[in-house]
């Protein structure tokens, strides 16, 4: 069974309580339709379990297949460096159908982030190393597609994919008390 090799640290983007009994780590790609479809499921789980949960998102862009996935991940890191990771994360998924660099810059601008700084950050790939580090860690942990979820460090394999996640989290919560 594939195990998460990179523990959640202060370098991660997280929602919830660091001391929660249940931790979910998602490896996702901003241009992957299955990841976009998983978004409301994750939101539903967060709404239901709130503080009893820690959720972290890491980048796993399949750049050969999804040409905008890597710049989108870099944009999210850029926003994250200014404390706005989650707002841009949601905005990118909401605009997945029309993703490109001008849209990414417009989304950043709508969050009052500097379009010029973002353009420079994308041109110089300032945040690419962080994105690639997420990807490399995901590969070593057995990420086998996107989205990939790890519940308390164990890869969640389910025939229905993310649709099976709420029941699995409920079950883990019961065990964790």
């Amino acid at each position: 069974m594939a195990q998460l090799r990179i523990p959640v640290t202060s370098l991660d983007h997280v929602i919830g309580d660091e001391n929660a009994a249940v931790t979910i780590v998602e490896y996702g790609d901003y241009e992957c339709p299955f990841c976009a479809a998983a978004q409301p499921i994750v939101k539903q789980i967060l709404a239901r379990h709130g503080r009893n949960l820690l959720f972290a998102f890491r980048h796993f862009p399949l750049a050969e297949m999804h040409p905008h996935a890597e710049p989108a991940a870099e944009t999210a890191e850029f926003a994250g460096s200014q404390g706005l990771f989650w707002p841009i994360h949601d905005a990118i998924y909401a605009n997945q159908h029309r993703l490109n660099t001008p849209v990414l810059i417009a989304l950043a601008a709508s969050l009052k982030l500097s379009p010029i700084s973002l353009r420079d950050a994308l041109a110089t790939h300032r945040f690419l190393r962080k994105v690639q580090a997420d990807f490399a860690g995901g590969v070593r942990s057995g990420v086998n597609g996107t989205p990939a979820f790890f519940i308390n460090g164990v890869r969640f394999d389910h025939p229905l994919g993310a649709a099976g996640l709420p029941a699995a989290i409920d079950a883990t919560m019961r065990v964790a008390g």
Binding site: D29, P33, F34, E64, A136, V139, G145
Partner: peptide, 16 residues
């Protein structure tokens, strides 16, 4: 019929 199929994943891990 999925994005992250095995061969596409390996394509991205090829440098490694």
């Amino acid at each position: 019929p999925v994005c992250g199929d095995q061969m596409s994943l390996y394509n991205h891990v090829l440098p490694e």
